[in-house]
Amino acid sequence: MINLTINGLAVSVEDGSTILEAARFLGFPIPTLCHHEGLSPYGACRLCVVEIGEGPGARLVSSCTYPVEEGLKVRTASERVVRARRMIIELLLASCPQSKVIQDLASAHGVRTQRFRQEYDDCILCGLCVRMCSEQMMAGAIGFRGRGEERSIGTPFDVQSDVCRFCGGCMYVCPACQLRCTYNQPEKAVCNACANLAPPCIQKEKYGDMMCYMNPCVACEIK
């Protein structure tokens, strides 16, 4: 067991766990976006920042990737942490305002406006779908491509992957849903999950009739 202090409370948690796991276990809420139970921590969204250390040596770290240390002093909601989180949410809103997950986060943290140039990206590069595909589905059909401004997620060469089993897991975990249902353009399809439904959702009259396991369906734009 490792002894540490979270928000002034002396606690002891299991060796090898992360700050996020320890804090959540003890009931301290830390918001996350790119973290998912059952997927390896990635530390992409930085929403889970916490402050560790004291005085001038205090610094912000992502709690989902930081393993607990003996004697560590953690603050999960200090002024600095809250300010950083609100900034991150503002930036997420600037790039992907249509995402319900991000809207909910903004609402929960009292972020009403954002000060940056508004964009309407459909991906925040959190890597959830990539990890889902390779770690849970053992497929590795999608991955990161390019870098910097041109970084994107998709299949190699932008053609339907031959290792994809159309499980739809990528769309299930996506907070922004960049992998939109393309069943009406099968040649461009990334997952074809909706094609596996019987009858395929594209042939359905209304969303309400669909037996789609994504409820609400984040992939399908048919209303």
Binding site: V130, C133, S134, A139, G140, A141, I142, G143, F144, R145, G146, R147, T155, P156, F157, S161, V163
Partner: peptide
């Protein structure tokens, strides 16, 4: 060439997505 990347993926046993990611990075 695309064929070469597919071959590398098959021979090394790594997902093509990984190889493609490295090649485009």
């Amino acid at each position: 060439p695309e064929e070469a990347l597919r071959l590398v993926a098959r021979e090394t046993g790594r997902p093509l997505a990984d190889i493609y990611g490295v090649a485009t990075f």
